[in-house]
Amino acid sequence: MRRRFHFIFLLALWSGWAQASMGMAELPATADDEPVTVFYPSTDAAQPTRRARFTLDVAAQGAPVRGNGRLVVVSHGSGGAPWVHADLARSLVDAGFIVAMPEHKADNYKDDSNPGPDSWSMRPAEVSRAIDAVARDPRFAPLLQLDKVGMYGMSAGGHTALSLAGGRWSPAGFKQHCEANLVDDFQSCVGLIMRLTGGPFDGLKKWAALWVIRHRFDDATPREHTDPRIAAIAAAVPSSADFEMASLAEPRVPLGLITARQDRWLIPRFHSDRVLAACLPRCELIADMPTAGHGSLLSPLPPGLTGLIGDMLNDPSGFDRSGVLPDVNRKTTAFFSTHLLP
């Protein structure tokens, strides 16, 4: 694998797109879907560009240049945005990939009104329609072969990734997990609504959480979605406690996992470790980060996070962000290069 990646990287240097800047464009929203942000090799010069709370060094609306001919779709986490995966996108673009990031409806940074199982049911089809949107765009369609697409998802996006890898889950599976593990996996079950503090109201919080979960998530119908164009999948700190693990024992395409040992939002023993136990050796561990938390893969990390969301997403003490993340991004890029390129 390492020799092959080095060979591909040398080809990139010879072809010229490794020296290209990273372009950025937005495909407009439709009646069914939110916008899709596209990062790609560009011949235009990059300039500081403001998006939400981030300043990105990109060629906004820059002219695309052909790279390696492959697309990778990135699925963000709950309440997420394209900008928090810009560093991963840069690593992929430097290797010649075009990267498409759909905003998931009612579960993004502009509208987080409906996260959790309702969003998880819609997300895989949104990924497929994001591929369709790129395929329709006259700037990008001539530059791509869409018979082998990569897909990366983090957190709730990791749930999307596992669904597309052949995993089956149901809202009732989410309910059953939370009934059995509410206290130990509380934030996974309730999100940012509240937290347990050890105080006198914890009992009421647990009762309220279970009441809502039992009334909203009792549908046992398995959720499945496949897209034959997707040929390699990476799931990073995935939400996965509600999956039928037998359905992930033999992923339908190469599947890689990225784990964070200090994750307090999606505690590994309930989520990523269960997936690895089910799918190894038919999947691979792209990277295991012993000192990383749930938000450590967000790069750049949103600034100024406080309160519960800060506790969940800010880097744990001792995590070397500048040393670890570039290496994880390289390994993720190598995973897709190995499985998607000739």
Rank of each mutant, 00 (worst) to 15 (best):
R2S: 11
R3K: 15
R4G: 05
S15E: 10
W17M: 11
Q19L: 14
M24C: 06
E26G: 04
P28N: 03
T30I: 05
E34W: 15
P41M: 06
S42M: 12
A46S: 10
A46L: 13
T49A: 06
A52I: 14
R53H: 07
F54H: 10
T55I: 08
D57L: 11
G62R: 08
P64N: 14
P64M: 11
R66E: 11
V72M: 08
V72F: 09
S75E: 02
G80A: 01
A81L: 15
P82Y: 05
P82S: 04
H85W: 08
A86Y: 15
L88G: 03
V93N: 06
A95H: 09
G96Q: 04
I98L: 11
V99K: 11
A100M: 12
A100I: 06
M101D: 10
P102H: 01
H104D: 09
K105Q: 08
N108R: 00
N108E: 03
Y109V: 12
D111H: 06
N114L: 08
N114T: 07
P117G: 07
D118Y: 06
S119P: 07
P124T: 00
A125I: 02
A125W: 13
V127P: 13
D132Q: 13
D132C: 08
V134C: 02
D137I: 15
D137W: 15
R139S: 10
R139V: 02
A141P: 13
L144R: 04
D147T: 02
K148P: 14
V149P: 14
G150Y: 13
A156R: 03
G158V: 00
G158M: 03
H159L: 01
H159I: 00
T160I: 02
L162W: 00
S170Q: 01
Q176T: 14
A180I: 15
N181G: 00
L182Y: 08
D184T: 03
D184G: 03
D185A: 11
F186W: 01
C189M: 15
L192M: 13
I193W: 09
M194D: 08
L196D: 00
T197L: 12
D202N: 10
L204H: 09
K206P: 01
W207I: 15
W207Y: 14
A208P: 09
A209D: 01
L210E: 09
R216G: 06
F217G: 03
F217D: 05
D219C: 08
D219M: 10
R223I: 15
R223K: 12
R229V: 07
A232F: 13
A235G: 00
P238C: 01
S239Y: 12
S240T: 06
A241C: 12
D242T: 02
D242V: 02
F243E: 06
S247R: 07
S247Q: 07
A249E: 15
R252K: 08
L255P: 12
I258D: 07
R261L: 14
R264S: 06
H271P: 14
S272F: 12
R274A: 07
A277S: 07
P281G: 03
E284W: 01
L285C: 02
A287D: 06
G293C: 09
G295M: 04
P300I: 09
L301S: 07
G304D: 03
L305P: 02
G307K: 07
G307V: 05
G310T: 01
D311H: 14
M312N: 12
N314T: 11
P316A: 00
F319D: 00
V328P: 14
F335K: 07
T338G: 01
H339M: 05
P342G: 05
